[in-house]
Structures are given as structure tokens and as C-alpha cells.
Amino acid sequence: MSPPALEAVVRRSPLYLLRWEPTQDAHVLLYPEGVVKLSPTAAAILERCDGSTVRALLKSLADEFPDDDIAPDVLEFLEVARDRGWIHADP
């Protein structure tokens, strides 16, 4: 397994519902038989998995979090998210 390529298009799986949950003070992913509470950064990444490329997603996150070098963590998260079926990456 390796992270999706920079040109890959990433999209959330329609199986998973991403939304803000006030009672958890966090974003959650809801799916058949499960609930996942997301960290703010995980939510920021998943919100951007809307059919844009990994490159565009990295740029948009870098604009929001200018102080850190976020790319390695984001790529690692995308790999995990794809592995769990939360997102699809094409190719």
C-alpha cells in the first residue's frame, strides 16, 4: 500500500455520512453499523475529498494551516482512509 498519487482524484464513499455533531463537539462519520469521531484535521481532510485531486487538496490545506509542513501527515491519512473504504482514489 502507498498513498494516492498527487494527480489522483479523491472522493468520499457514499456509504459514509460526514457531518458536524454538536453533542460530540466534533465531526463524525456515520455508516452502517458504526460511528467514527474525527479529529479536526481528519475532518478538514475528508471535507476536501469531494472530487478534487490530492494536489489541490494539499494546496487548500496548506492555505488553511500555513505554519506546518502538513503533506506527509495528510498523505498518510489519505492512505488509511482509502484502506478503510472512507474514500475512493482514482487512479
Partner: peptide, 13 residues
């Protein structure tokens, strides 16, 4: 940005 990732909330608090 070090905490990329998530934790399953089986614990409903």
C-alpha cells in the same frame, strides 16, 4: 498538524 487520524467512538462518553 500532528494528529491526522481518527478514533472510533465506541465510547459514547
Amino acid at each position: 498538524m500532528t494528529e491526522a487520524g481518527s478514533t472510533p467512538t465506541l465510547d459514547g462518553q
